[in-house]
Each structure stands twice: as structure tokens, then as C-alpha cells.
Design a protein around this nucleic acid. Structure first.
Lengths: 197, 197
DNA sequence: CGGGTACCCTAACGATCGTTAGTTAGGAAG
DNA sequence: CTTCCTAACTAACGATCGTTAGGGTACCCG
């Protein structure tokens, strides 16, 4: 029996609804209905609809950032100075976060556009910083000849788009287990970048 | 001076607005404002908001399908029986359609969820058929040893997600010309699949 | 000149939106 | 027993939603 705050329950069902119908396509009353409660009742726990979106997006962003931190520092220990292993660790971490909570991750990937200007800019900044981690590793890999010559910015973009696509079809109850998805995608992404041998 | 029907002008601005704010996040009056017209005036040209969405999605789907038809039959002539060239042609055709009208393509990629059940199912069917073309070529490539052993369904999914990501950032007025984007992505996608040499 | 066509207007409809206000029920803590 | 907290309720607010009705103006073709 897991203790779960009412606030967290709201964000959980909101994640799923936002994922399925989008932020604008989901009303406060839709969220409330999924919790068998009146729409107005939610305002005892949240201050606005956008606050719910922000909480979800912010938490997801933090999860991606922390997982990348851990992946990079871990790769630096086990394979110091190896850009290929570093990128592989980043890719795996990204897929892991994605599959651990698809709803949250989907909202992070797609619904940040619905945020107000300030919060949208803040998230755009964090997304950019996050993407740079991938780009830098690709640049490093090219520098040491492990990765093929290509445009690192485009490659990083393509890579993250490919991974984020998982969020649109992944089902935790589906046939394909999360770690197998991670394995396959790490393989595809590395092959995409590695210099021909 | 290009003759453009009023109906087409509506769909054009609707594409851009749907791309930026989503279908649910765009009101009829938003579309009308972009045309310097009152909201109700649109109903002289359009029977409902969803009809506009459907027109955009249907047209985009048709463009993707026709481009793939042309690419495959052309590849069959220039490089008969070569699954690598066939896939390369499919990838290039997909990127071309995507960049020729980003607004329309974006709506096709993301906003079909907002359609009513019947039309949504129809589009899902067509998307699936379209995706199968990529998957079959990947399977063919694996069968002849040109592509690495991998899960063809996952690979096709990853490939299309990677390409569709272009729709979220591509700007026709930006620095990167469309054909260079196509070149880079064909290269990345083939490398992703090709067996190590 | 007359009739049609293309286009847009104002006004309003019922529904739904996010949100506020005020109230009630139940249980824990003093 | 009183007090407080949590969590829910009903009712309503002004705004906006998609859409309909009915009328008006400018231009093209005969």
C-alpha cells in the first residue's frame, strides 16, 4: 500500500491525459473525472492548470538531467575518455527515463509549448543544455575518429528525435520490455554514428 | 501573382497555427484573425473545424504516399532489386515531403489524434501501411545481408521518428537548405542500418 | 441594366472553459 | 468537546468555444 499524496495523484492522471489529448485538449474537469471528483475540487490541491503542467514538465526535465549526470560520471569511471561509451551511456539513460514514466516524459517532449513565455523559455534553455551533452560527445567521437564525419548538431537532433519517438508508442504492459528497447536503440544510435570499419 | 482559393488559404494558415499551438489550442477565431476576418466568416468556406484538420491531414498523407510510390518505382528502375537504394529513396522522399510543407507535415505527424474516431482509424491504417513500406525494405536488406540483424519493426519506427523530428525545428528560411538536411539524414539512416564492413 | 456569385459582416445560440466562493463531512490532535 | 486539517461538495462568475442565422457589398457576365 503505497502512500501517495493527492497532489501526486493529480499529476499522474494529468500526465496520461495530457499525453493522450494534449494540454489544451484536456480540461480540468477531465482530470477531475479521472479521479472521480468534481472539477472545482482540484483547486484545493493545485493553484492553476498551468501549474500542473509545469510540475510535470519540471520533474521530467530534472529526471532526464539527473540520469544524464549519473550516466556520464559513471561512464567516465568505467571507460575514462571514451566518447563512444559516454554516448552509449547517455542514450541508455535517456531511454530508461523515457520508459520509466512514459506519461511524464511524453508531456516533457511535446507539451512544453503550452507553458507561458517565462517557463517555456526556461525549459527551452534546459532542453538546449541537455541536447548539448549529446552533441559534445558526438564531437568528441568525431575528433578521435570513432564517429563518422557528420554535422554534430543534426546528428544530436536526429538521435534525440529517434529516441523521443519511443514515448509515442511505448506501453509498459506491452510485449517489448524496456531494457530490450534500450538495447536495440543504443545499438542503432551507435551504428548510426560510428565510422565505417 | 498566384491564384489561391480562399479555402486553400484557410488550410494554409490553419496548418501553421495547428503546428504551433495544436488543434485544440487553436480556435476558429484564431484562424480567422490570421486572415483578418471574423470567425464566423470562415463557415462560408468550411463546414467545421474538424473538416479543416481532416483536409490538412488527408492531403499530407496523400503527399507522403505518392512520394513513396514515385521513390520506390524509380529506385526499382535505376537500381532493381537493391533494398539499400530503395530505402534511401524512401528516406529522401520522406524528408522532401516534410520540408516542402512543414506545417502540413507537422499536423499530419502530431495532430491526427484530434480527429474523430472514424477518421482517426482511417489515418492510423494509412500510417501503418506507410510504415510497412520502410519495414519491408529493411527486412529485404537484412535478408540479403546488406543491413545488420536487428528488429525491423523497431528500426522502422526509430527511423521514421528520427525523420519526423525534422518537422519540429525545420525552418524554410533557416540556414540549412532542405536538400542538405535530406543528404545528412539519408546518410545517418543508412549507416544506422548497414551491416558493419 | 439585372442577376448571380464570392465574400464578409453583426448578433447570437448553447456548451464548455478555468477559476472563485462558500460550505460540509470526517477524522486526528489538543 | 473543541479545534483544526484534509478533502470534497454545490453554485456560480465571466470568457471563450464551435456554430448558425440573416443581411450586406462589390464585382463579373449576360
Amino acid at each position: 500500500m503505497v502512500e501517495i499524496s493527492r497532489r501526486q495523484a493529480i499529476e499522474d492522471v494529468a500526465s496520461d491525459l495530457f499525453r493522450e489529448h494534449g494540454y489544451a485538449g484536456t480540461s480540468i474537469r477531465d482530470i477531475a473525472r479521472a479521479l472521480s471528483v468534481q472539477g472545482a475540487s482540484l483547486y484545493a490541491h493545485v493553484t492553476s492548470k498551468e501549474d500542473v503542467l509545469w510540475a510535470i514538465v519540471d520533474r521530467a526535465a530534472t529526471r532526464f538531467e539527473r540520469a544524464a549526470d549519473a550516466a556520464e560520471s559513471n561512464a567516465e569511471i568505467t571507460h575514462p575518455g571514451d566518447p563512444v561509451e559516454a554516448l552509449a551511456a547517455l542514450v541508455r539513460a535517456h531511454v530508461d527515463v523515457l520508459t520509466q514514466d512514459v506519461g511524464e516524459a511524453s508531456v516533457f517532449v511535446h507539451e512544453w509549448r503550452a507553458l507561458g513565455a517565462d517557463r517555456r523559455n526556461a525549459i527551452l534553455q534546459r532542453r538546449d543544455t541537455y541536447q548539448q551533452r549529446f552533441r559534445r560527445r558526438i564531437e568528441d567521437g568525431i575528433a578521435v575518429g570513432a564517429f563518422a564525419m557528420t554535422d554534430p548538431a543534426i546528428a544530436a537532433n536526429t538521435l534525440l528525435s529517434a529516441l523521443n519517438g519511443i514515448a509515442t508508442w511505448y506501453d509498459p504492459a506491452g510485449r517489448m520490455p524496456a531494457d530490450r528497447i534500450a538495447d536495440l536503440n543504443v545499438d542503432l544510435m551507435l551504428r548510426m554514428l560510428e565510422a565505417s570499419r
